[in-house]
């Protein structure tokens, strides 16, 4: 097992290298120059050149890449092109809100989807099955921004139950209750999509397992329905569920761009859009890299969890 994990990490290294190359070149082949965006239009050509020299933008692309990579290994992500703050500091300030928003959404989504999926599989073709399937299609089909605007319209603008956006009331005490009331609507939007996707996999995976002989045996030897469903069947249908969770984890970083924009949630998604507008390439590269590392990490975690959930899976 340990050997397998080590080998998986070694394989991930060239992929990570490819990620840094692609990431750097996509962003640096951009025609627009960040310096043109940030200095005032009356600057002389000499001042522009000096500014470019300061940021290393007068060097060839490969030299810039090498500089960026060596700095990266020292834990230095560079300085923001627009605010001049260290990128690391900016990321740290924005990562918390996004992790909070997406973490809560994923948990809420799974807490809805897993029991519903099991019920649907147990009562296949019942009215509740049709209802949940309908909800799941809605969840995977509705664009987040439309659902977001919809819930703001109904719950914030008409019923005045929740605030329309941001994370805390301006000038408020920023307490827990305040944050929770700001969380409800965006979490509802994100959890709808997450649950809509997950419930299909839980349902079909459970249906698959419920037809197996060993479940009939378990029932025949007199085990209660509850134990048969939730212990024997659920455990054996975990693999597809783990796969979906593995695909969902990277959403912790990059999954809420549109929702954060709709609700003005001060996280990485909003930062991405701000960086795009201000052509803050060093920040964009850092966000992309962080997101890609999360994907690689999630893939690794998924493979390890497979072996934990299903001892029949052996790696050699």
């Amino acid at each position: 097992m340990l050997q397998y994990i080590v080998r998986r990490i070694l394989i991930a290294i060239p992929v990570l290298f490819g990620v840094t190359v692609l990431n750097f070149f996509i962003i640096n082949l951009a025609p627009g120059n960040p310096v043109d965006m940030m200095v005032n239009p009356s600057a002389t050509p000499e001042q522009l050149a000096m500014q470019k020299h300061e940021l290393g933008l007068d060097q060839p692309v490969w030299a810039q890449y090498w500089h960026w990579l060596t700095q990266l290994f020292q834990g230095n992500l560079g300085f923001s092109y627009s605010t001049r703050e260290p990128v690391t500091q900016i990321l740290v300030a924005h990562i918390g809100p996004t992790l909070l928003l997406m973490g809560v959404s994923l948990i809420v989504g799974y807490l809805i989807a897993i029991p519903l999926g099991i019920i649907c599989a147990r009562k296949q073709n019942s009215w509740i099955d049709y209802l949940v399937t309908g909800f799941s299609f809605f969840g995977i089909s509705v664009p987040h921004f439309f659902l977001g605007l919809g819930v703001i319209y109904v719950f914030a603008s008409k019923l005045l139950l929740f605030p329309t956006g941001s994370m805390n009331t301006l000038g408020g005490d920023g307490g827990l209750i305040d944050t929770i009331s700001h969380l409800v609507l965006p979490v509802a939007v994100l959890a709808t999509g997450i649950a809509g996707n997950m419930v299909r996999y839980v349902r079909s995976s459970m249906l698959d397992v419920l037809g197996k002989d060993y479940l009939r045996t378990a029932k025949a030897k007199g085990l209660s329905q509850f134990i048969v469903t939730n212990k024997h069947a659920l455990r054996n249908s975990l693999i597809p569920i783990i796969t979906v969770i593995g695909i969902d984890i990277p959403m912790l970083i990059g999954g809420a761009i549109v929702t954060e924009q709709v609700f003005q949630w001060p996280g990485l998604g909003l930062l991405t859009i701000q960086s795009i507008t201000s052509r803050d390439y060093s920040t964009l590269m850092a966000i992309n890299l962080l997101a890609a590392v999360t994907v690689l990490f999630a893939n690794l975690l998924t493979d390890i969890l497979y072996a934990v959930a299903d001892p029949r899976i052996r790696y050699d």
Binding site: I26, V258, T272
Partner: peptide
């Protein structure tokens, strides 16, 4: 693998804004 490691929507957003 490299292409799949990027969060799809984020890269599309960045690329479209660049070109």
């Amino acid at each position: 693998d490299v292409f799949m490691s990027f969060p799809y929507f984020m890269v599309i957003l960045v690329l479209v804004s660049i070109i």
